[in-house]
């Protein structure tokens, strides 16, 4: 029997139901209002807001953006107004245009800082999940170092776990030797979910100046060019942990979403595609039912039975 149209796209993410699995990824969607100008962002499953830290951050010098075949490289460096302003200004503004639980993306430079920022967001009703970024490649002395050492990743997970009742989703870096080991360490330390991948480290050189294009020299590669790498890692992690996994990395079509979910992802984040096609997520949501029909998929939930 054919499922009701709306039910076909429903998924569960750490105990919170999503109308569909499509989630704009942190850093590509601001705090939502730029996109709310062009479509009703309540159509989304949810979205992950701009990576937030305890203190305000300006980020890296410009140029922060470079292009590459089928993708881009960014070295923004976690520019954000700091968690206090996010709570006092961004979240009240968001409430006017978005009525669903939002995913709070949190970064830090010490274990204490991660915990403190998460503890402050714990009181925010609209925050449904904490997505803890231990994988930013663009900041020195923090971010990714927590994402490349399983012991450090576990320590951040435990510290955050201790200060919140909300689901804790650890966002992993692909810039590691063994992604499954990182995911397993987070699961064991009490994570409710895993999201991956953050960007892959890369760079470009301007041949006219013979200098790196990015002021930060290196940045994070995203866009369709990273999709196969991301899919492979999602596959590996889904076969290692039992907690839900959010797949991301170069997703830009409904088929990409179906591949990620067939690999075992419970939901899918869409990043760079939002920047070149502001309606990308809406288009993907609208294309999903027809794409599912093409492959004989009755509901997205039936895809979540990884094997092998």
């Amino acid at each position: 029997m054919r499922e009701k149209a709306a039910d076909r796209l429903r998924v569960d993410l750490c105990g919170i139901e999503l109308e569909n699995p499509v989630i704009p990824a942190s850093g590509t969607f601001g705090y939502g209002y730029e996109f709310a100008e062009i479509y009703d962002i309540n159509r989304l499953g949810t979205f992950s807001f701009k990576g937030t830290t305890r203190q305000p951050r300006f980020g890296n010098p410009t140029p922060r953006i470079a292009e590459c075949p089928a993708g881009m490289i960014n070295a923004v460096g976690l520019q954000n107004p700091g968690v206090e302003k996010v709570i006092s200004e961004e979240l009240p503004r968001l409430k006017k245009v978005f009525s669903k639980p939002v995913m709070a993306n949190v970064s830090g430079f010490s274990i204490e800082e991660y915990a403190e920022t998460c503890a402050m967001l714990e009181a925010e009703e609209q925050v449904g999940w904490l997505e803890v970024n231990i994988s930013c490649p663009n900041v020195h002395g923090g971010g990714m170092s927590f994402g490349t050492d399983p012991k450090q990743a576990a320590a951040v997970t435990r510290a955050v776990r201790a200060v919140t009742k909300k689901p804790v989703i650890m966002k992993l870096s692909p810039n590691v030797t063994d992604i499954a080991e990182m995911a397993a360490a987070c699961e064991e330390a009490g994570a409710d979910g895993i999201s991956l991948i953050n960007t892959l480290q890369g760079m470009r050189i301007n041949l006219k100046t013979r200098r790196p294009v990015l002021a930060n020299v290196m940045g994070g590669v995203s866009g369709p060019c990273v999709f196969p790498v991301a899919l492979r890692m999602v596959w590996q992690v889904c076969r290692t942990v039992k907690i839900p996994v959010i797949g991301m990395g170069g997703v830009s079509t409904a088929e990409d979403v179906l591949e990620m979910m067939t690999a075992g992802a419970a939901a899918v984040e869409v990043g760079a595609a939002n920047l070149t096609d502001p309606r990308a997520c809406l288009r993907i949501i609208e294309e999903l039912p027809a794409a599912m029909d093409r492959y004989g998929i009755r509901s997205l939930r039936e895809l979540r039975s990884p094997e092998g």
Partner: peptide
């Protein structure tokens, strides 16, 4: 002028002080 990612405020690629 600055190198831009999105051009509409989402990516923070072109920020200046």
């Amino acid at each position: 002028e600055e190198r831009m990612g999105c051009g509409f405020g989402a990516c923070m690629g072109c920020s200046c002080r």
